[in-house]
């Protein structure tokens, strides 16, 4: 029965899958992670701010994002961003955004909600006295956050942040709904062209598993090494 499968197709198409697809997937993951962490950290600071308006706005944003299926958000952004961009720039017609930029913005904003909650826990894990000590030296809020609180919060939260990034890496496969050639999209194109669905989707699953599992093991090792001397 196994003879009915054409496993050689993987060997033949792998260069294309990795050069076109995986490059896109990894680029999107890296950029979305960077943007998501920056935006998520700002959101976390807003959520913890003593100004009611800021914290309410931030928590509303986080709750909406976390209660909406990612596929829907991807669709919404894809159709809305051109209109919103046009409106912001004062143009009468929707602007050209392109699938890549649209999906990047989507993932940055969607993941920011999750990174926000991680960073919020991280910031809250730093004793209040650290903030006081920074203020007492004459540092501003931003200096105290940037020099004292956030570096410690990042260090405490790094394993969780990376774990969330591994989830993000898997989630980027959803961009195939925009017909983008990410790793899954590339494999899916080959699969449908040659009628080799089983082979290709099995291969895709194995690759995602290998990368995600490998990264999680690395995170575990990192966690063990990440202890400040004497702590």
């Amino acid at each position: 029965m196994l003879t009915a499968f054409d496993w050689d197709i993987i060997r033949r198409t792998a260069p294309y899958l990795f050069r076109e697809g995986m490059t896109f997937t990894l680029t999107l993951t890296a950029l979305a992670m960077t943007g998501g962490i920056v935006f998520g950290t700002l959101l976390a600071m807003m959520r913890l701010a003593s100004y009611r308006t800021l914290s309410t706005a931030a928590s509303a944003y986080v709750n909406v994002m976390r209660s909406t299926p990612l596929v829907l958000v991807i669709f919404w952004f894809y159709f809305l961003v051109p209109w919103m961009g046009g409106w912001l720039l004062g143009a009468t017609r929707p602007i050209q955004v392109g699938a890549f930029l649209s999906s990047l913005v989507t993932f940055m904003m969607f993941e920011a909600a999750y990174y926000c909650e991680i960073m919020r826990a991280g910031i809250q894990s730093i004793p209040r006295g650290q903030m006081w000590a920074g203020y007492a030296l004459g540092l501003s809020y931003w200096q105290t956050m940037g020099q004292i609180v956030l570096p410690q919060a990042f260090r405490n939260m790094l394993p969780v942040l990376l774990t969330q990034t591994i989830i993000l890496f898997q989630d980027t496969s959803l961009v195939y709904v925009l017909s983008i050639t990410d790793f899954l999209g590339a494999a899916s194109k080959v699969a449908q062209r040659d009628g080799r669905l089983v082979e290709m989707y099995l291969f895709v699953a194995v690759v995602y598993f290998a990368i995600s599992f490998g990264l999680s093991s690395l995170v575990k090792r990192l966690q063990a090494r990440l202890t400040v001397p004497g702590r």
Binding site: P127, A133, Y135, A136, L137, G138, Q147, Q152
Partner: peptide, 18 residues
């Protein structure tokens, strides 16, 4: 911020930056 820079403070739990 400027005023605080002119007053030193020492805390019960030291609050050094670890």
């Amino acid at each position: 911020t400027r005023l605080r820079a002119q007053i030193g403070m020492v805390f019960q739990h030291f609050e050094l930056f670890p």
